[in-house]
Design a protein around this nucleic acid. Structure first.
Length: 229
DNA sequence: GCGACAG
DNA sequence: ATCTTGTCGC
């Protein structure tokens, strides 16, 4: 039984009209839920995107893992022609078509999805993790390596140390040290998860690396680090 | 007006 | 993201 998502394509339509896309983001952002709706999660998924042919092909990877053992249960890849360039703030319009195609190939629907990029830590509150969550209604968490908007104070040097990421007077995410002495990750809720739970999930799914296991495994395949030359 | 700007 | 080898440091 494949994972199925009834996703209205207009929620992801790209026609070159940047202002229109931004308005759509602001509208969809009102549908984001920052509460924990239905934990615990048994099956986790990690998704990430890479490019081939000089950017002409978008390659999305989705990995399904058992939440207890953190062992991969399935890994799928989807390749679609790239339809738009990277525009800061509009990343989801560029990458989600391929991500949705990959998720649809998983043998089961995940209970929680880790996305490479921001959740609500976005200019209009709708980073790629939040956009994916609203479209599929799946709980999602955004895990980014760099800040897009907002700022935070100093973060302690040890794993687990954190600092709130604020933007326009509001909490939008957490700068989290996922490993001793490594640059902190920026964690933010995507959908149906609270700020506190998003952080706990990232720490709980860590295996000693900087990235949480779902993201790390998806990242390896998306960037072709699985098959070194 | 200038600089910043997830992946 | 991607182009790319070795190298410094925990």
């Amino acid at each position: 039984m494949d994972a199925r998502f009834d996703v209205p394509p207009e929620l992801l339509a790209w026609d070159g009209d940047v202002p229109r896309a931004r308005r759509l983001q602001a509208e969809l952002a009102t549908r984001v839920l920052l509460r924990d709706d239905f934990p615990p999660w048994r099956r986790l998924a990690g998704v990430d995107v890479g490019f081939e042919e000089g950017g002409a092909i978008t390659r999305a990877v989705a990995v399904l893992l058992d939440a207890d053992s953190m062992q991969p249960l399935a890994e799928v890849v989807a390749r679609l022609p790239t339809r738009m360039p990277y525009i800061p703030g509009l990343l989801s319009f560029r990458e989600l078509p391929a991500v949705l195609a990959a998720l649809a190939q998983l043998p089961d629907v995940p209970d929680l999805v880790f996305v490479d990029g921001h959740g609500v830590a976005h200019p209009r509150g709708l980073g790629i993790a939040a956009h994916l969550g609203v479209m599929t209604d799946l709980p999602t968490i955004g895990v980014a390596k760099k800040i897009l908007v907002g700022s935070h104070g100093p973060v302690g040097p040890r794993r687990g140390d954190r600092a709130a990421v604020m933007h326009r007077g509001h909490l939008i995410g957490t700068a989290l040290r996922s490993k001793d002495g490594i640059q902190p990750l920026i964690v933010s809720p995507g959908h149906r998860v609270s700020h506190a739970t998003a952080v706990q999930c990232v720490l709980a799914s860590g295996r000693g690396y900087k990235l949480p296991e779902p993201t790390r495994l998806a990242d390896r395949l998306a960037s072709r680090r699985d098959r070194p030359r």
